[in-house]
Design a protein around this nucleic acid. Structure first.
Lengths: 147, 147
DNA sequence: TGCTATCAGTTTAGACCTAAACTGATAGCA
DNA sequence: TGCTATCAGTTTAGGTCTAAACTGATAGCA
């Protein structure tokens, strides 16, 4: 919904503001995502794979459903992504009781240690234009939107 | 990159803040996108199609390249999306000189008038939790990130 | 005239993601 | 015991998007 067409409708001023936010937000987000993607190429990882790797590495013993909830994607998506990480030898699944627990293999842990700190540093650097106070401010506003 | 794993690394406080912003941003964005998608189902439109429709309707005489720049997607993507809108009879392409100009058909204009105001109102309402000043603040911060 | 640059758009392969239908196992309860 | 609910994960069809290679046309310039 990245559009600017609202001039046409002379909406109320607050509505206009909301639209501008949405527009800007999606630009910032997709730009950031593309940068991330580019940066991760060094390790042959996609953004989605990195997310998974980071999330699995940070918590040991996660079910696929928990993973889906943490990453805000569907469980179907998790099934697909995990399968790939498994193929590549980075992750493993263990059926236990009625769920499957996901964890990193030795090889996955090595990759994790290698890429996650660097990538997180890179990720965070995308907001370096903001001062510490501005970052806090932004975080506060984003949280407020979400509730 | 929606991860929270940075506790593991005890990063500098500012890096931590940047990560939290990224995490929150992607949550807000994808939540918003999903809501949008849901809302647009009433008209049988996807978010991407709506973006195109709104953008074409707001400017008459756009080339595909200009459209790609406005929507922050690749021109390949534009080719694909336009083809569908054309099939459905909402848009048309006219070769002129060395580019193709895209515009709405009569049917497309009707849909535009129908859906765009409602959808924009809906879109804007997703930030109603913020006061007018907070919206301005947020917009300012997002702009700053982008430069 | 002919070589080369560039530019708009198309094509293709592939990654990502969703919604919805499905499987199979567990649990509650009459 | 047997019916039904629910829940984790899988599968499938389809939409979205990208990067990169490609086509074809224009333009600059020796």
């Amino acid at each position: 919904m990245t559009n600017e067409s609202s001039e046409t409708f002379l909406p109320k001023r607050d509505e206009r503001l909301g639209l501008l936010i949405w527009f800007r937000l999606s630009r910032v987000y997709s730009h950031s995502l593309r940068e991330t993607h580019q940066h991760l190429k060094k390790w042959g990882l996609s953004a989605a794979q990195f997310d998974m790797l980071a999330q699995i590495g940070a918590h040991d013993r996660l079910t696929q459903q928990q993973l889906a909830d943490k990453l805000f994607v569907t469980k179907g998506n998790i099934t697909q992504l995990i399968s790939k990480l498994e193929e590549q030898g980075f992750a493993q699944r263990e059926q236990e009781w009625k769920s499957k627990y996901v964890s990193l293999t030795e090889k996955g842990r090595t990759l994790f240690d290698d890429v996650v700190p660097v990538q997180e540093q890179f990720q965070a650097s995308q907001y370096d234009a903001l001062s510490r106070d501005e970052k806090k401010q932004l975080l506060r506003l984003l949280k407020k939107i979400q509730d």
